[in-house]
Design a protein around this nucleic acid. Structure first.
Lengths: 388, 388
DNA sequence: TCATATATCGGTAACGTTTGCGGATACGTT
DNA sequence: AACGTATCCGCAAACGTTACCGATATATGA
């Protein structure tokens, strides 16, 4: 019944174990091992063959190296053959296989970017800025978002690493305290540029906005408008932006002779849920703060909405200042005073920095920090004097 | 002066053509061809060697196939060797090379998505919804944005094709009239799911919101609030969303016995710049429309701002309804009435559809269209009756 | 006319991984 | 002891592309 595929004999066949669940046989005559595939082996859908360089080469009777050279403008090719090859490539709808290309060149011309979220316009703007620069330089951008989750962030970095990006732009999630997944890149000489959400525990290349200056100006502006009990709803303590904005807040108070009260400082986690809770805490305090400097605009907006719900007049009974100039800020109420960050510039600066690092001769360049200036946008939510 | 790298002789060297611009030599003694690199040839930084399967294999004295099988839980591996391999892989910080894997499997476990923009929250929300489903299924998402440019869109699709994505989610830019770059995917049996910005010129898999119904309800709502001269600032005529929203607008007017006036219908291009121009046109008309149904929220907001600047009272002198429920809509003025689209659901539905298509046995499944329902969110900008 | 220069092209190792096929060894049973 | 069976592992061919090394045929020069 079972016939040897080599010699055709039947009676010399004996069973010889299993291979991956399939019965294996041995022909004692010709000493040939063979197995018969299980009939129910499900074949994965075989993708239709895409035309390759080899197809073109065989079609024209030349070697694949000739085709490769012709397609890349190598000088060692006769103009006639080049023309024929390009024509045939177009006819066969040839699309180069970037995977094979990257594999042999060990360069993917791709940089990855990881952002904590992109539901506010802040990070998308940065991405657009970065993408513009990178596309210009012939690089692609793989965008991932961690959804403010450390685990997702680690998963994303692993995927980017497996896909062999040539560089990484990173802005970490608010609960990232371990940086091994980022250090894995630097261990492999893959440059990393951190932007916005950075930590000073890593002495590396960064692009940040001048959070300190922006915060200082914001609080000084509140003081100049007559507010004296200014609270701060901050961000996670491990992020540099939180630290810097807090520092600017404290220094501005001190510079104007106002006390820095611990009970007026709360560290949030940048989520709207927590913002609402902490805002409620502030508004129920006695004495109630007469102004709140929030770590970002969504938080500030929560404060404004809650204050409005409680019947507090803005800016007379409560001044509010946010951070980042979210598009909503211009439209809510009489406008939310906020500190504008140059998002497009941040993206462009980060992209330019990663381009430099990827082309650098040296293995490691000294860490560099680019700090872009912020700008105070004054709107109605803080203009107590003007509207009093 | 020139020494043979092999035998070290000098006088036997002769020139032998050029290789890529570099002088080529031949040692007549040992018949060795060699070239000397041009001194200004910029060496691309050689990436540090990343540990491969072969490294682990040589380190442990086994074959690379054994390592590969051990890492993938193949049964034919002794538990002890497997343990040793996994240990060593961890010690050497092995990261699999996805490129090589994809090359041999000809599957990348990656789907690409192309959106026209992501500065409003609309598309990011869809992306988040899609990503959640895809990550769950073990797929990665490569996000690209065309910036509403046909050329960029073509470039992005080419890049996704070169990177051999297994599937594509596409929402086309507003000036896309040629679909060859999308058809290139289907020609290669790479499934494509279009969402939101689709065209009926392609009879393929789609996920859309019920634009017609939403538009109908919006205009009916305006009529019920006493508006009679209702204009429509629409989108590009080639997009189905424009056509459907226009159709809903027209049908609602007709259903309530109102005339459909051509001068009350303008096709914009979804940009804010044009929106402002056309809004100005409407507001200067005589008789001036007493309500405008806008194709999306940014357009509607432009109308509101311009009306406010012209001293027109909303909703008394001008009713406005938008589309998509942008976050700003809830906060601007007394709120913008708008038609909410289930963005997360659209993303999830598109992702599920592409998953089905990628796993399908058949080469081509019959085109399917999923239509998700929309919802009218009534706010102040259209409540003439209630606020009169 | 002969030796060399040039222009064009081919052969073939890589790149890192998967996998079908085959074999060696050890184990178990009469 | 002899045979049948299990277990475990190696070899090598793909996947598609690039680039180094040569090999031709032709052109050029003395």
């Amino acid at each position: 019944m079972i016939k040897c595929p080599r010699c055709g004999q039947v009676e010399t066949i004996m069973k010889a174990g299993f291979v991956r669940g399939n019965q294996r046989f041995l022909c004692k005559d010709c000493q040939y091992y063979f197995t018969i595939a299980a009939p129910d082996a499900i074949k994965t859908k075989k993708r239709r063959h895409q035309t390759t360089i080899i197809d073109i080469a065989q079609d024209l009777g030349v070697s694949n190296s000739t085709v490769s050279r012709a397609l890349h403008g190598h000088p060692d090719i006769n103009p006639n053959t080049r023309k024929a090859i390009l024509e045939r490539a177009h006819e066969l709808d040839y699309q180069p296989n970037q995977l094979a290309h990257s594999l042999v060149k060990s360069r993917t011309n791709t940089v990855g970017i990881i952002v904590p979220e992109f539901l506010t316009q802040f990070f998308p703007n940065i991405i657009v800025g970065a993408q513009k620069v990178l596309i210009q330089a012939g690089f692609h951008l793989i965008i991932t978002q961690s959804d403010e989750s450390y685990e997702t962030e680690v998963g994303n970095t692993k995927a980017l690493l497996a896909n062999r990006v040539d560089g990484l732009l990173a802005s970490m999630s608010h609960d990232t305290n371990n940086y091994d997944h980022f250090l894995a890149f630097e261990k492999r000489d893959i440059p990393v540029v951190y932007f916005n959400r950075v930590t000073d525990e890593l002495g590396t290349h960064k692009v940040v906005a001048n959070d300190y200056q922006g915060a200082f100006w914001a609080v000084e502006h509140l003081i100049q408008n007559g507010y004296t009990r200014i609270a701060h709803l901050g961000g996670p303590p491990n992020l540099l932006i939180s630290q810097e904005r807090l520092r600017g807040y404290c220094d501005a108070l001190r510079a104007h002779g106002l006390p820095v009260l611990p009970e007026y400082i709360i560290h949030g986690d940048l989520t709207v849920q927590k913002a609402r809770i902490y805002a409620g805490y502030f508004l129920e305090m006695t004495p109630r703060p007469d102004a709140i400097f929030a770590v970002n605009d969504p938080t500030a907006i929560e404060i404004m909405l809650l204050a409005r719900a409680k019947g507090l007049a803005i800016p007379h009974e409560l001044g509010v200042v946010g951070f980042s100039d979210d598009p909503i800020a211009a439209h809510i109420g009489t406008g939310l005073t906020t500190v504008k960050q140059p998002t497009l510039d941040i993206g462009e600066a980060a992209a330019n920095m990663i381009l430099n690092l990827m082309q650098a001769e040296e293995k490691t360049l000294p860490p560099e920090t680019v700090m872009l200036s912020t700008e105070l946008i004054v709107r109605g939510s803080s203009l107590r004097q003007a509207t009093k």
